[in-house]
Computed example of a mutant assay.
Amino acid sequence: MTHRLHFPADVFDTYKQLPDEARRDLAVSLVDAQRHPLEVSEPYGEDDGIIRTVARGRVTAVILIGAPTSTITVLAIAYTGE
């Protein structure tokens, strides 16, 4: 099953401001998460199977997995860039 991806406007603004490489890394992480969200993510705090993190390179995102609606919402993005 493929999950739909949702970016709140403020988080998408953060995404747009990332350097090209970081945007690519985050995009790859999120595409992977759309197919297998629990397999390619790590727990965010306590493992509830709902709020998780994905990371690649120097960018990390906190995601909310909505199993009933088959959506992944990007809650926050962190970049440890130059």
Rank of each mutant, 00 (worst) to 15 (best):
L30A: 06
R56Y: 12
I72A: 01
E42A: 15
E82R: 12
L18G: 03
D32T: 12
T80L: 11
E21C: 15
P37S: 13
T80E: 11
I51P: 00
V11E: 08
V11P: 02
G45C: 11
T80D: 05
T2E: 15
R4S: 13
I51V: 08
P19A: 09
G81F: 04
F7S: 06
V62W: 06
D48A: 14
T2N: 14
G45Y: 04
V54M: 13
L30S: 01
H3F: 14
E42R: 09
G49N: 08
L5N: 07
I51D: 00
A78K: 15
R24V: 09
T80Y: 14
A22R: 00
R4Y: 11
S41K: 03
A33P: 01
S41T: 14
D32I: 05
I65N: 01
A9V: 13
F12W: 10
A33M: 02
A55S: 05
Y15W: 13
Y44Q: 01
V40D: 03
I51M: 07
S29H: 03
L38F: 11
P68K: 15
V11S: 06
T73S: 14
R24G: 02
L75D: 00
D13F: 07
G45R: 05
A76E: 07
I72T: 00
H3M: 07
I63F: 03
A61P: 00
P19N: 13
T73L: 04
G66L: 09
L18V: 08
A33Q: 00
A76I: 07
Y44V: 05
S41V: 04
I72H: 01
E21T: 06
E42C: 13
A27N: 06
T2I: 06
Y79T: 03
L38G: 07
P37K: 03
K16H: 13
A67T: 08
R56H: 09
M1R: 15
E39N: 13
